[in-house]
Amino acid sequence: MLEGKFEEASLLKKIVEAMKDCVSSCNFNCTENGISVQAVDNSRVLLISLLIEKDTFEEYRCDRNITLGVGLGSLSKIIGNGANSDYLTISADDDADKLNIIFEDKVKDKISEYNLKLLDIDADLLDVGPMDTDATITLPSADFAKICKDMKVLSESLQIIVTKDSALFQSVGDIGTGNIVIRPKTDIDHPEESVTISLDKPIDLSFGSKYLSDIIKATSLSQKVTIKLTDQSPGVFEYKLPSGYLRFYLAPKFDE
């Protein structure tokens, strides 16, 4: 039996919103330590890795490992029915064909209960082991989202060039070009506004703008995003959860 109670429905809402345009359905793997997901988009370019650790939940129990195949569009519709501040409890029996979803209003005496039909999903898993990292950039997630949106008006590719003291985001398109440079900054009063860049090797990588548009849908999950880049390798974009993470692995573009 699985039972997990979120202090606020908004957290699961944000997680599902961040994933559903990239993958339509995925397996939620539930263990005594928490819930994890690995899912790849249809084009095999973008991979989502989600970990919701047990400590994220107000209450959590999972007696036996269970895999729950979930249609994210359907889950999103049902979760959308609850208020952001509601308690949200998900539960499933060991051999369940449905996920039970309960919202509890914290003020009114109101409980809403839904069942989501589960799917049998046969998905390939990729072996994403520990990766070397040449450069790590941490910046406010809203700033990164704005950079991606702004650069997308120019080109379907975004080039990221990292040197010792700056990260350059560059777009070259038919109508013109754009450059945005960010530099490390420590903001003691507003640590969430700080920018850090650590570098072992300079980086010059290009990524597809449309995939970055999917990634930045996770912006509301965390005030910061950490971008890990390695020469000629997928970029890793990580949004931390209160306990766990939502990570995206994005395959780079190469010169033809």
């Binding site: 095999r44 370019v45 390939d124 072996d127 395959a251 573009k253």
Partner: peptide, 14 residues
């Protein structure tokens, strides 16, 4: 013009 690679070039299947 740049070509999009896929993750299968970097990660093996489990």
């Amino acid at each position: 013009k740049k070509a999009q690679s896929t993750l299968l070039s970097f990660f093996g299947k489990k």
